[in-house]
Design a protein around this nucleic acid. Structure first.
Lengths: 243, 243
DNA sequence: GACTTTTAAATGTCAGACAAATGAAAATTT
DNA sequence: AAATTTTCATTTGTCTGACATTTAAAAGTC
């Protein structure tokens, strides 16, 4: 953890980078306590506010956690899947909203990833996950449901599908993508007719999953992707000439 | 962008959250200039160092950039695919190293995602990408290559395969996963025999891609996954009894 | 008009101080 | 002696005020 000055960046950025490298390289292991802010100030020959800014940068990435009081300090954080997942959601959401990624592109990516999980889910799905999916299908069929609630249920349904793969790395990657797309999905108004269609596809997916029929799950997901993109396309058309 | 106090967290965390919400909600658009640190201090009724800590948190996530001098300040950053990608690499790397994700799990996730891209790549691959892949295959066949260089070339090869899908969302997601696995891959010693096998599979993939034969690409990737996992398994065996 | 100088505004950094939390040791009580 | 309370040192959180540095625009000069 030595002060390796890179380019001419802020001191706080340099220090954050140095500490981050120490963590990534394993020099600082999980739950290890960093030197106190005063000690870091001495080591890096900077003031305490500068050290603090560096530590806040790391805290923002969930790399460290801090605790006040005696025997307190900054500790290397074990990055949980949840932390990683929420960071991914934020990043993906911003990427989608700020870079004007088209709905088609996002949709294609999402279903491509989801289909990658599907074959694994077909092998490994538990009764629990099937129950979750069927419960969400039931919820989706309730007449009084708002569009937002319908979409939220949709997310839960697909998360269950993804979690069925029993691979936390896949779950974390994909769940981020699915959730990040929710705002875009919310912009689509679901008519009673389109909900019916989606529920039918969800049922087809769940049935196939129960039968461990990977191929049918795959084709159903392809159909769902096409249908979703068609819906988005129709909404865009309608907006252009709202006669 | 009002001061909405959440729980009993640090002030800097609260402020960072408030500003982040303003960005995500679109209240602050790309390239918009935030109020100066002094003005933010007044608005949130905190001191400048506290505001600065909040801003550093946001800077760590590439949500803002700062510029010194007159007409300088903090600006909402357009999150580039590159920024998102490097964040994803960091997060994925830490997740893999700190959570003791098994090689099998990581490998399975990686190839599942990669196969998701493959069918799209088969449709859209350009001559350029094919050329890159063949160049890397050639590099991999050079006898003097170190294991690290072999792995690096492997990453480049697979990135080209993923980029062939012409879907930046997929590229950003998957490239992170592939790169994060490199340290794990580096731990595998590639004998001349195993390199030969891998090169043969890479060639099979590239040929199939050139012929736009999605199915063969898929099966070749399945074979490559199995072979990679077998190699890792053998290495683990060898370590247990290095007779 | 083109160039140079000045200036004001903003971030970057520093120093010192106090507040608040917290665990451990010391003192007190039972 | 055991249990409880008090004290205390350590560490982060926050504030105040100041100065350094950068930078673009305004003012001045040729």
């Amino acid at each position: 953890m030595k002060a390796a000055p890179r380019k001419t960046a802020d001191l706080s950025a340099q220090i954050a980078h140095a500490i981050r490298d120490a963590i990534v390289s394993g020099e600082l292991i999980v739950d290890a306590r960093l030197p106190s802010e005063a000690e870091l100030s001495d080591q890096f020959k900077v003031s305490r506010p500068t050290v603090r800014e560096a530590l806040k940068r790391l805290a923002a990435q969930s790399l460290i956690r801090t605790q006040r009081g005696a025997s307190g300090g900054a500790f290397v954080n074990r990055l949980s899947f949840e932390d990683a997942y929420s960071q991914q959601v934020t990043t993906s959401t911003l990427l989608l909203s700020m870079n004007a990624v088209s709905f088609d592109t996002a949709c294609e990516a999402r279903y491509a990833l989801e289909r990658a999980c599907a074959s694994l889910s077909a092998q490994r799905r538990t009764a629990d996950q099937l129950a979750t999916m069927r419960a969400e299908i039931f919820r989706q069929s309730q007449p009084g449901l708002t569009d937002e609630a319908f979409c939220a249920s949709d997310v839960t349904f697909h998360r269950a599908l993804v979690d069925g793969a029993e691979n936390p790395v896949l779950s974390y990657q994909l769940a981020g993508a699915v959730e990040a797309m929710q705002p875009l999905m919310n912009m689509i108004t679901f008519t009673a007719r389109s909900r019916e269609e989606i529920i039918a596809l969800h049922t087809r997916i769940t049935d196939a999953l129960e039968a461990r029929d990977a191929e049918t799950v795959d084709t159903a997901l392809v159909d769902l992707e096409h249908y979703t993109r068609q819906l988005a396309h129709d909404v865009a058309e309608q907006k252009r000439k709202p006669a």
